[in-house]
Design a protein around this nucleic acid. Structure first.
Lengths: 146, 146
DNA sequence: AAATGACGTTTACGAACGTAAACTATTAAT
DNA sequence: ATTAATAGTTTACGTTCGTAAACGTCATTT
């Protein structure tokens, strides 16, 4: 799915998106039933969040009778990806490895996941530099202080 | 460094923290000189951000004459980690692998990083399950729809 | 002594967010 | 036909964030 200008989804909105992503297309009733208890949100809170997601073009609406069916306009993958990119942008390139390690430590991975990740690492190894160059502004990382 | 109740640092505040982390201890002048141009922030913007970080116990102040020296009370590692954990909490356990993969694809890794990551993966493989169990609320992920 | 500058504090103000009540229009039930 | 339940829209309100001006104090320069 092409996400033109990646929309930013807040933490609360993300919960809504998960329901939409999981179901391809949902009614607001579905979202409310799914989240009302789990999140301890009032029905109107959920309505507000859905409204905001439509407003920011994360959800598309299709009229179904007099109700709406909501469909995701951004993919989970892209959304997760832009979140990841954000993390990497916040640290020195040299520390990218550490960030990946941290995430990996906390992640629950299957044998197959591990296998695939090792493969990807091996691919990256083909072109990986001996040492990563720092790209930070002077003074903003200890690679080159003033 | 022990971070008791992990403080939340916003994107703009994070820039300030990077300067502090890079320098161990800094004066506000140092932060201002480092970021004013790079971020195109006015001096007072930076002062505000520093003030907020002190307020939320991300920075500690040590009086030096009539000025202050600012010292980080939260480590970069912990801060990055809690940010990473946040992402994993937003997807189904089954997709953890995909999240790691996305991050890894974007990350700049050195040969050594790659080596270490492969090692970590091999360690994880020892106890990794054949298949990761979904932990999502019903309806919130496609592993178990209603 | 008066003016200027550096540094921390206070105040400001709009946008985004979390949370939700109230209102409107429409359909379903009595 | 009235009433009650739905679904979407509008309004609300306190907090956090991004961005910054203004202010009060010392300290330094003229």
């Amino acid at each position: 799915m092409m996400t033109p200008t990646q929309v930013t989804v807040s933490a609360a909105e993300w919960e809504i998106m998960r329901v939409v992503w999981a179901n391809e297309a949902v009614t607001s009733r579905k979202v409310i039933d799914t989240l009302e208890d789990k999140m301890e949100w009032k029905e109107s809170t959920i309505k507000t969040l859905i409204g905001r997601l439509v407003e920011k073009d994360a959800l598309q609406t299709v009229k179904e009778g007099r109700k709406y069916i909501y469909i995701a306009l951004i993919s989970e993958e892209d959304t997760v990806k832009s979140y990841s990119e954000d993390i990497l942008a916040r640290v020195c390139n040299k520390d990218n490895g550490k960030v990946v390690r941290n995430l990996m430590e906390d992640a629950t991975l299957s044998q197959k996941d591990i296998e695939e990740l090792i493969e990807l690492l091996q691919e990256k190894a083909v072109t990986a530099p001996e040492e990563v160059a720092c790209d930070c502004a002077v003074g903003q990382c200890d690679c080159h202080l003033v």
